[in-house]
């Protein structure tokens, strides 16, 4: 029980720090801005209270926003991600049984399933994020390519992190 809390708190702090101290300062190009902090929301237990899920997403987004001076931007996108999560889990993994505190991690969903789950939710998050950031449909194609490239890079980084977490546990 307390193990679950500690694990998630550590994960929250670690991902926020990776995001604001490393990734936000990396300039691969204007088109690639990976946001791996969403992994925190992706890995919350499947049976978590839905309102708690939304509230945690709100807090996560707000923290990123405070560090990036982008108030509301990441908050809105991350809350949307959290709202979509139960539906996506039901859609893809109807046949999987999850116990009370079980996380939808890479060993439970299998690498292929986890990739699909991450890709779809990161895409939803990044679409909201990049359109809210430019706040117009001008330069539609450049925003689309920004979304596509960043989604791929974020997903790739999340898969790497998830594999690292998984191998350490074994």
């Amino acid at each position: 029980m307390s193990n679950l809390y500690i694990r998630n708190i550590v994960r929250f702090i670690a991902l926020i720090l990776i995001q604001v101290l490393v990734l936000n300062h990396m300039n691969l190009s204007g088109y690639i801005n990976p946001y791996v902090y969403v992994l925190f929301i992706l890995l919350l237990p499947v049976q978590i209270n839905k309102s708690a899920l939304l509230l945690l997403a709100f807090i996560t987004g707000l923290t990123i926003d405070l560090f990036g001076n982008t108030l509301g931007l990441h908050t809105a996108s991350t809350v949307l991600l959290a709202y979509a999560r139960p539906g996506i889990l039901r859609l893809f993994f109807k046949n999987l049984e999850f116990s009370a505190d079980e996380e939808p991690n890479i060993s439970k969903l299998k690498p292929g399933g986890f990739l699909k789950y991450t890709l779809v939710l990161v895409f939803i998050h990044h679409t909201a994020l990049f359109f809210l950031e430019v706040f117009s449909f001008n330069g539609f194609l450049s925003t689309l390519s920004r979304i596509a490239l960043s989604t791929l890079v974020t997903t790739l980084m999340i898969m790497t992190l998830a594999l690292l977490f998984a191998s350490r546990k074994k």
């Binding site: 509230l55 709100f58 987004g61 108030l71 509301g72 908050t75 809105a76 809210l132």
Partner: peptide, 15 residues
């Protein structure tokens, strides 16, 4: 609850 939280986020965003 989702709509409420999004409303707060957008208020922050616009301000």
């Amino acid at each position: 609850f989702f709509i409420m939280l999004e409303a707060v986020s957008f208020t922050l965003l616009f301000s």
